[in-house]
Amino acid sequence: MVLLFAALVGTGGLYSALTSTSAQATSSDASAQEISHGRQLFLEGCATCHGLNAQGSANAPTLIGVGAAAVDFQVGTGRMPLARPGTEAETKPVIYTQTEIDALAAYVASLGAGPAIPSDDQLDLTGTNLQRGGELFRTNCAQCHNFAGEGGALAFGAYAPSITTATPKQLYEAMLTGPEQMPVFADGTLTPQQKLDIIKFITTVRNEPNPGGLALGRLGPVTEGLFVWVVGLGAVIAVAIWIGVKVS
């Protein structure tokens, strides 16, 4: 009995030892596979502008050192591939699957150290300070993206896009990597906790009801003025015309 038991344990132990090593071998293979998959995708879809070794060209900046987060953001929001060079990237339908995006990100990350894609733990919004997030948002973000995140104009045709549909991950990545003209908010200037506070604020406020009624775009007095002229004055003048019309 004892002998049988020992034999079983021994076989089991040997088996697990062997399989675990092969499992390790599989995971590192997957990583290497991911990178090479990413490289393939890169050569097909990105190298024309970013160069065969991602060193950049006249049309596009270098990707060496931008990190996985930048790729996940740009490709994950459909900004990349760019519709045409020379214009500001805009959100478009995403053409890569998440697996492909991960692969691209892994490839670019392998070229040089840069900000990594935030994990779910890093994006945990429990314990964030909503009010502090608001103060930080108004100081660092509202001047470009507007008080409600509806976006705004920059110089010479550039613009800060609306952030009302961005996911927390995309918001985090944007702050971290500074896409296009957006400045880079490194962890030394906006700590990860502060970034989460801001994300908590953005995601709370954009889902807030408009207690007064139609939001009119959350753009401020311009749309309010148009509304009062067209709807308010229009309604009242329509009644005035009714008052003056001859009765049959």
Binding site: R138, H145, G213, L216, G220, P221, V228
Partner: peptide, 29 residues
Amino acid sequence: LGAIASINPVWMFGPYTPTEVTAGSQPDW
């Protein structure tokens, strides 16, 4: 109009401080 359309949602702008500003700063029409 007051029932159906928002105007001047001051809570979204935040309190005034001379170090902050919003994009699209316009006066009333």
